[in-house]
Computed example of a mutant assay.
Amino acid sequence: MDEWSVRENVKLRLVDPADAESLYEQIEKTRPQLAKFMPWGDATRSVEDERKFLTYCQERMEDQKLWNASIIIDGKAVGMIDLHNIDRANQHAEVGYWLGGEYQGNGVMTDCLEKLLSIGFDELGLHKIKLLAERVNVASNAVAKKVGFVLEGQLKDEIYSDGKFHNADLYAIVE
């Protein structure tokens, strides 16, 4: 399957380089916020950069080290959600996500993360999914808790973004 319904107007669709322009538009619109929490926020500087990244994702998916989807709202790619560092032997992976600013604040990411958990557990056969969120990223921490992730620990100086190291909360959910 290449597409999963989340809500009436929201879908997850496996990454496709054809979505580069739409995703880059959202990166441009949300750059200050993305750069604050995502190391790639400042580095993605063109549609071609995004297209290369999406092609790279497809290659990693073939190696089964990554599962990555675009978040589609009303037919337009406006964010991404993934399972990365997939460890088949130990049946776990880590989740990452971002969403264009104009689409935030109405539960879209919460619903997409719930769908991703279903895909991870039911389709990919994972046992545990982890989520790492900077302590200062209140929205990401709230999404993790809303979906049922449990705080397993706090990691000091774990993430370098916005020009400095940040502590991170490590969450996990077990099937």
Rank of each mutant, 00 (worst) to 15 (best):
V108S: 08
V95T: 13
K76M: 03
V143D: 01
D74E: 02
G120Q: 05
L83E: 03
G79C: 05
H92R: 12
A69Q: 06
W98Y: 09
K130H: 07
R88W: 05
S70P: 00
E123W: 02
W98K: 05
V143E: 01
L83Q: 03
L117E: 14
G100H: 03
L113H: 04
R88L: 08
V108L: 10
L131D: 10
E123C: 02
K130P: 02
N141M: 06
H84P: 05
N90W: 09
N106Y: 12
K65R: 07
G100M: 01
E102C: 00
V78K: 01
G105P: 00
V136F: 05
W67E: 01
A142E: 10
E102H: 01
D122S: 14
I73L: 01
A89M: 10
K145V: 15
G107M: 11
L117A: 08
G101V: 00
A144Y: 15
G101R: 01
I81G: 09
A93Q: 07
S118I: 12
L131I: 14
A133G: 05
G101N: 02
N68R: 09
E134M: 09
H92P: 06
I81P: 12
T110G: 06
R88T: 04
E94I: 03
V78Y: 06
Y103A: 04
G120S: 06
H92W: 14
I71R: 12
Q91W: 14
A142P: 06
Y97E: 12
G120W: 06
S70K: 03
V78R: 02
Q91M: 15
H127K: 07
K145M: 12
C112D: 13
D74V: 00
H84C: 07
I81W: 13
N141E: 05
L124V: 00
L126C: 07
